[in-house]
Amino acid sequence: MAAPWAFLRLGIREWNGGTRSIHGMSESVAPGGNQKRRTLLQYLGDHFYDIQALREFLLLRQMLKLNRKNRSFIGINEKYGPYVTGALFILKLGGAVKFQDKEWIRPNERGRFSADFLAFREVPVEAVDASGCAINYLGLDNLLALKELQSLSLQRCPNVDDWCLSRLYPLAGSLQELLLAGCPRVSERGLACLHHLQNLRRLDISDLPAVSHPGLTHILVEEMLPHCEVLGADWAQGLKLGPEQQPQDTSSPVSA
């Protein structure tokens, strides 16, 4: 008899957690939140005895939560322009932003940051530090409009993957520094897309667990970007792969 109430409490508690995250949303998004709340309760009312469906729903909701963090700020973009929008997006995720000829702006320990940058409508964003942030493919919408971005740090971002790297080509005209160290989902397939960024001068691809052959990938990326300083696997790791490369070459004699 108590089981249905337990499920309802579980659903309500989860939803209360979701409600807290809505607190920071702009007003234009609030009606959507209300609709989702009704939908969730309606959904639970129809299927609350179904454990599997509830778990699948919670799994999907976890993904939607990440996408909500990476939503585009349409209203703010219209009012303040793409630079302030991109800066606000990064600061809300906990990253840091540097406008041209200005100091770095970053949130404090409690996530608060100064709102003075709202006056920088015409000032381009020069550098973005999104290290450790929850940015993903959708969130890059807010960054690709920063046409003068020179430095982008995506170190240790858990949701940056090969799809994200394939989206960076609009920054090819300005981007000079890209730091990808410690991203668990970046592989050599995504690094292959960086050949669009011909103005790149510094690239950090160290500590990428999804790259299958770090030393070989390091060499190939250096060949692909000849004007760029590539920081990658340490030389000891590269030396381990040295003997592996030679057998590959000798096992395939060149034939005309």
């Binding site: 699948e56 999907l60 090969d162 799809w163 394939s166 397939r189 995504g190 292959a192 897309c193």
Partner: peptide, 15 residues
């Protein structure tokens, strides 16, 4: 996604 199963990895090459 299937609950309790590993995620699908397509090894996509966006070249």
């Amino acid at each position: 996604a299937v609950v309790d199963a590993p995620p699908v990895d397509l090894r996509f090459n966006p070249s």
